[in-house]
């Protein structure tokens, strides 16, 4: 996967989430976005996922611009998957329907084919026994695995994960990170915003550290974490490792 941000600015009212942000990454399978909360990671991810339009600047993924018209962006979103920090499953549907409904309504599967596919995917994530439970009846880790299954089910080119483990305890975090590794095994391109430095280091090829709406440093994962060049990265990483 190739990513290119050129002079991207993103404003929410007065607040500037990304400020003249440029980033260029080539040939990565898994990109980790790290950095302090409120620094612009989530905004970067939302822009990449086509959920929001930048105030100015251009964003390319694999050489094509993410369209600026809504039909183009809708078509783009159908080819990508997103996993959110708070799972964002639909509370009125059970796990199976949460996974199957987009297949049927967005991706043209017949009803029975969508159910079949959803059951296969849930099985892969060891969720078969929970398929008729609603999100309120599932643990955080289970919910997040359902959300990952939902993102994977339509076989997207790229999956974006926005701090997928930040709302979870350590055990659930491990179970979700395990599920994310399956996405890597399934040869999906991933972009993940995360605070899990260990995971970023071992799963990601490329890391970008974003702080205060700017790109601070980017490079191969091991290099950025073990041998950071910028003082801002050094400060952030030493804070991550000190406790």
């Amino acid at each position: 996967m190739n990513l290119r941000f050129e002079k991207v600015t993103m404003r929410y009212g007065q607040q500037c989430a990304l400020d003249d942000f440029s980033l260029s990454i080539d040939d990565a399978r898994c990109i980790a976005l790290i950095g302090p909360s409120g620094g612009g990671k989530s905004t970067t991810l939302r822009l990449l996922a086509g959920l929001e339009t930048p105030s100015s600047g251009s964003i390319q993924i694999n050489g094509t611009e993410i369209g600026s018209s809504e039909p183009e962006r809708l078509a783009y979103r159908k080819r990508t998957g997103v996993v959110f920090q708070a799972f964002n499953l639909f509370p009125h549907f059970d796990a199976l329907t949460n996974v199957a409904l987009p297949l049927e309504k967005v991706h043209g599967y017949s009803h029975s084919a969508s159910i079949e596919k959803a059951e296969t995917i849930l099985e892969q994530f060891q969720l078969s026994e929970h398929r008729f439970k609603k999100p309120a009846e599932l643990s955080g880790g289970q919910n997040q695995r359902v959300a990952i299954a939902r993102a994977l089910a339509p076989d997207p080119d790229t999956i974006f994960l926005d701090e997928p483990t930040s709302a979870l305890d350590p055990e659930m975090t491990a179970e979700v990170l395990d599920a994310i590794e399956r996405l890597i095994d399934a040869k999906k391109d991933l972009v993940i915003a995360t605070h899990q430095m260990g995971f970023a280091k071992h799963a990601a090829n490329q890391i970008a550290l974003i702080a205060e709406g700017k790109l601070v440093e980017t490079g191969p994962a091991a290099q950025v974490i073990e041998n950071p060049q910028s003082p801002r990265t050094q400060k952030f990483l030493s804070a991550c490792l000190s406790f």
Partner: peptide, 15 residues
């Protein structure tokens, strides 16, 4: 967050 999720899935406005 529900609306964002629906958008990410690729639902149209009507859906």
């Amino acid at each position: 967050s529900q609306l964002l999720s629906a958008k990410a899935i690729g639902f149209s406005e009507y859906q």
